[in-house]
């Protein structure tokens, strides 16, 4: 890692830790190794969204040419969002790709991801299935996103109906994460989900 990158990251980590906005904005950074190449980010789910009450973790890898190349950021907590892959956590966000600018910082990156959670962009999706559900069945999307927040991000909203369907598939021998994923992709239709799994 270059000297510029190391000095800048030290300052950025201080900026996030000492910023009084942390309690207000809900973003946090955790350093994983001394040479600052791998960092853990935390984002609190924004209020008035299906992700409210959840705490989402992100893996941040810093390239050698940072800050002249963007960091590699993805969710390590599973999240149901049109612009995030429900399988891998990869994020579709322009400032993490071609619209990266050298004056952007880890703080601005996390704030941008948090803003993306408030305002999805289904016309430029990372996960086409989620985007389709978002546009065609918004009520199902909201309920599914809330369920995923409760299941994977320590959210508080309970959904007894969805949990019962998941338990049915688990009784058939399906792994829980797979059951949640397949039911969500099939709009919680137990018959289509069963056919999808066992065909």
């Amino acid at each position: 890692m270059s000297n510029i990158a190391f000095n800048r990251l030290q300052r950025e980590c201080k900026e996030v830790v000492t910023n009084s906005e942390i309690s207000e904005t809900g973003i946090m950074i955790e350093i994983l190794n001394e040479n600052l190449t791998e960092i853990k980010g935390h984002i609190r789910g924004p209020p008035d969204t299906p992700y409210a009450g959840g705490m989402f973790d992100l893996d941040i890898k810093i390239p050698d040419q940072y800050p002249f190349s963007p960091p590699n950021v993805k969710f390590s907590t599973k999240i149901w969002h049109p612009n995030v892959s429900s399988q891998t956590g990869v994020i579709c966000l322009d400032i993490l790709k071609d619209q990266w600018a050298a004056s952007l910082t880890l703080r601005t990156v996390l704030l941008s991801i948090q803003a993306l959670m408030c305002t999805p962009e289904p016309k430029d999706p990372q996960d086409a299935v989620v985007a389709k559900q978002y546009m065609e069945k918004p009520a199902v999307f909201k309920a599914t996103a809330e369920y995923w927040t409760t299941k994977f991000a320590k959210g508080a909203v309970k959904n007894a109906g969805y949990q019962a369907l998941v338990d049915k598939l688990k009784d058939m021998g399906v792994r829980e994460e797979e059951a949640v994923s397949v039911l969500s992709c099939n709009n919680w239709d137990i018959n289509r989900s069963t056919v999808y799994i066992f065909s």
Binding site: Q65, F68, S69, D98, A101, A102, S103
Partner: peptide, 17 residues
């Protein structure tokens, strides 16, 4: 460094692009 590592063939401003 912006000129060497940037995506654009021209110098792109780190602040306003």
């Amino acid at each position: 460094n912006v000129q060497n590592y940037g995506n654009s063939p021209h110098l792109e401003c780190p602040t306003c692009r």
